[in-house]
């Protein structure tokens, strides 16, 4: 045992750049993913957003899009349907009403949802239905894109 603390083992306050950040993706049906990554890039409502470790605390709404999580060796993708992103220096939380990894996406269901939404959009009913169909279409397209990429 070392009788005194070695100075280089004590992390300096502030100045040190953190290597990774913990990312958790949470939905009402339970956590989808929790792991550490080097970078998070996602599409917020007013443009692309890249988060590195040590980012200032931030809250931003997300669009229906794919979130890319860059790890040491590979990149994971998660399809999110809106929701928002909460950033702290060492942790990123994504709260969405639904979020799926590519392996969890039901392609058949997404394809059907896409067709159904397209039919509804063609039929052009009142405003609410129109908006809902539009969202449904966006979600379906997003899921299919994440699977196919």
């Amino acid at each position: 045992m070392v009788p005194f603390p070695l100075p280089f083992l004590i992390p300096a306050q502030g100045g040190v750049r953190l290597k990774t950040l913990t990312v958790s993706v949470v939905t009402p049906d339970g956590p989808v993913l929790e792991d550490s990554f080097e970078m998070v890039s996602c599409k917020a409502e007013n443009g692309e957003l890249g988060i590195l470790p040590g980012h200032i605390p931030l809250v931003a709404p997300l669009t229906i899009s794919a979130v890319r999580l860059k790890g040491e060796s590979d990149t994971e993708r998660v399809a999110v349907s809106g929701g928002f992103l909460e950033v702290r220096p060492e942790k990123v939380t994504i709260l969405a009403q639904s979020a799926e990894k590519p392996s969890e996406i039901d392609v058949e269901r997404a394809r059907k949802a896409k067709e159904r939404a397209e039919r509804r959009l063609k039929a052009k009913q009142d405003d609410v239905d129109f908006r809902r169909a539009e969202y449904a279409l966006k979600r379906a397209i997003n899921r299919l894109k994440v699977v196919n990429d």
């Binding site: 931030l58 809250v59 931003a60």
Partner: peptide, 8 residues
């Protein structure tokens, strides 16, 4: 606990 930045 923390002062957030809000985007936008």
């Amino acid at each position: 606990t923390s002062e957030y930045e809000y985007e936008p």
